[in-house]
């Protein structure tokens, strides 16, 4: 039929026009500042530091091992180790970063720092509207800006965070088991030493210097 193409086209556009008032499929605009597009779980933009608990300074997982600084291809991470130590996630005393700066105008989001971190302390964030008036200082994020809680990490990358948390839980369980075993061993050793010392002190007092048993207990 003559004009069939035009009529089909006009029907389609009319359908689009009227459908845009009722269905989301025919009006795919997301009005940017008010609405945001949902991101997939594997989205990544720039790194951030994870801390456990509520205190950003105390719970910070990073131990300033500087592996990420050395592995970063464009060298955008700048770390200064602290002089003192603080207890980390499993209770062991570790260094912590006094300053931890990432220059996000240089960072290329390659995620290598995340891959090499042995402590699961640096992860990729999904925030993208980080533009700033200051071209240099405004784009150099320091530790306070980079530290975000583990709960936040769970919200942006649930599966990854769950895996990391499970790993940590395992570690803590192992550490706790070790501590318990060491404590039991210490108790047993102390009990044994006590009975030994008692036996020895009953026999000789002058020759043997009582050696402290189970010296460097963990």
């Amino acid at each position: 039929m003559v004009g069939k193409g035009i009529i089909k086209g006009m029907v389609e556009t009319a359908r689009n026009f009227l459908g845009s008032y009722v269905s989301k499929q025919r009006l795919t605009t997301i009005q940017y500042p008010e609405e945001r597009a949902p991101q997939i779980e594997a989205a990544r933009n720039f790194p951030f530091l994870v801390f456990d608990g509520t205190d950003a300074e105390q719970g910070l997982r990073c131990v300033a091992c500087q592996i990420c600084e050395k592995e970063c291809p464009p060298k955008c991470i700048f770390i200064e180790k602290s002089k003192d130590k603080k207890p980390d996630a499993t209770g062991k005393m570790q260094f912590y970063p006094a300053t931890f700066n990432i220059d996000i105008s240089v960072c290329m989001s390659c995620q290598i720092c995340v891959e090499v971190c042995p402590f699961d302390s640096i992860k990729m964030d999904v925030v993208y509207d980080l533009s700033n008036n200051d071209r240099f200082a405004g784009l150099l994020l320091h530790k306070q800006q980079l530290a975000k809680s583990n709960e936040y990490y769970n919200t942006i990358h649930p599966t990854e965070a769950a895996a990391v948390d499970a790993h940590f839980a395992e570690e803590r369980a192992k550490a706790a088991a070790r501590v318990k075993a060491a404590a039991e061993a210490k108790l047993a050793a102390e009990a044994k030493a006590a009975t030994d010392a008692k036996a020895k002190s009953e026999t000789t007092l002058a020759d043997t210097q009582a050696q402290p048993v189970g010296g460097g207990t963990r």
Binding site: T13, N16, F17, S20, Y21, R26, L27, T28, T29
Partner: peptide, 9 residues
Amino acid sequence: GLGRIQNRF
């Protein structure tokens, strides 16, 4: 009108 036809505001 053109916007609505083209799936946008």
